[in-house]
Design a protein around this nucleic acid. Sequence first.
RNA 1: GCACCCGUAGCUCAGCUGGAUAGAGCGCUGCCCUCCGAAGGCAGAGGCCAGGGGUUCGAAUCCCUUCGGGUGCGCCA
Length: 625
Amino acid sequence: MTGSLTRPPICVRRRLFLRFLPPAFNLNAMTEPAPSHLFARVLARVHVACAALVASGELPAGLDLSRVVVEPPRDAAHGDMATNAAMVLAREAKTKPRDLADRLAEKLRADPLIAAVEVAGPGFINLRLKEKVWTDALAAVLGAGDGYGRSRLGAGEKVNVEYVSANPTGPMHVGHCRGAVFGDALAGLLAFAGYDVTREYYINDAGAQVDVLACSAFLRYREALGEEIGAIPDGLYPGDYLKPVGAALARDHGRTLLQQPESEWLPLVRARAIDMMMDEIRTDLAALNVRHDVFFSERSLIDGGTDRVGATIDDLRARGEIYEGRLSPPKGAPVEDWEDREQTLFRATDFGDDVDRPLKKSDGGYTYFASDIAYHRTKFDRGFANLVDVWGADHGGYVKRMQAAVAAVTGGKAVLDVKIVQLVRLLRNGQPVKMSKRAGEFITLRDVVDEVGSDAVRFMMLFRKNDATLDFDLGKVLEQSRDNPVFYVQYGHARGHSVFRNARETLPDLPEDTAARAAYLREARLERLSDASEFTLMRQLALYPRLVEAAAVSHEPHRIAFYLYDLASEFHGLWTRGRDLPHLRFIIPNDVEVTKARLALVQGVVSVLASGLSVLGVHAPDEMR
RNA sequence: GCACCCGUAGCUCAGCUGGAUAGAGCGCUGCCCUCCGAAGGCAGAGGCCAGGGGUUCGAAUCCCUUCGGGUGCGCCA
């Protein structure tokens, strides 16, 4: 492997980055952003200031503004927002960052949104926004309702998100859980960010293992007919879950299958078993609140007289990416029964993989990889140039070759991002849950969902980066405490509603319906909000649209979960302050005006909590008594 | 041997695609507290961001390298 051959993945990554670059960060797409996306609005103001300097000849034309960002400063003492514009542009403008910052600051001071501007550090421009900006931002939250945070970032581009794709040879176990939740939440996030998302499941119904499934089911069929089958032989699936399949076969076919040769009963039994397993998997996924739009059958690639795998190989051959050759055996782990033979190889190394990959087995059949290439080609053929696969950690070694294949088979027109979800350690009150693999004894996904509920499972699975391992504690996740983020966030939502319920004594006409209440509270005199912690909360709410876009761009739904935890934390904090400082309580019986204003703030919090939870597929309960 | 992922406070983890003095929860230390709803509150200690080089105005973040942990390594999916 030479160095130059390892470059393509970098290019792939770069392309992916550019593809996902939000239009808000691109001068060429400088449309007026949604009024509720405050950061995009202020960034646009910074762009305008730059344009003014270009017009007056103080800056050269054609500057690349893509690296200019507006972000909340880490330290609140630095103001509400900061921009790096001067530091990023100074080199190209052939001037010192501080000087450029001073000139930009001068322009920005004239902006009606901005209360104060100061230049600090190496050339940061710190902006303090007028208070009305924040109360207007809150009003925008109430006005947008469910739509607050929704983005046009994706611009309706089609994205295919493939997740779960568990083999239909048995029920789903806890290991599948994380990928299912992650993929589903990512799909929800991308949809919220303006992509046209298709959620897909690839059914591996063509390999040798589904034949094993069929044989295992056939045994259960004989059992259902009263035969004594004894212990399940090694190599077959031992679990009880195939008994219903055997029973169904016995019911539908009586003893007729027993007379048939294997070549006749096997396809029949196989199809039936796969159907029933897929039904069970769908049911389990539904319990987890996970759904798919498309279930794509691997067998369909080669069924019905068409051979799309062969066609794909032919296509690759035409592109010069196939050759007959030999591979050297792997260096480290010893491979038993290594047979040095000439085989059909895909030039994966042309696209950044470590070695070329075989497409045909020694028995002449296609490798799994070959079908997978054909499958991914169908995604492209179906109009998807933006592909995401969610895989378990044990498949990490396949990422490069799959990306190589997608690049080859689409002529570089499609981008595949593979998200690897790391292992989950299942605990109960700090102790690892024992699982015996013997005799098919494993904790199923269903067991876990039935015990703690889909909300707890989903939120916990998302409360960690996908590429970090995760401890999932069945005991802790039901605790009603701050330690338990699921409870903490949901409780924030419920507590908001509790405030509304209590507020009816002071505000009898407060509507119960969410949209009506939001409209009602939007009329509140928001300038009555004055406490620093109230403004902190308003700023927090203003972060949401920007956060949604960043999470979508980076394919990281966990950011939503962490944001919700922070928001809930801030809200609980304000509530708690009301215990010691009664004048800060949301409900002030003798001051209807301030009560309304504060309820508007609560409504904003409740609405964003509900929105974020909904993106993640977690319920937002009105009460948790 | 090779590839990919991870390494941040005593523990579990964030860190917004390169920004300012690195954050949160738990735990620890010291004060306070009786509720609009049931997580108590406030303050404090605790860090060479695994180690070492490099890139630049600026690095936990990008590149190289060493160490330590995880996953995988023709024809299974």
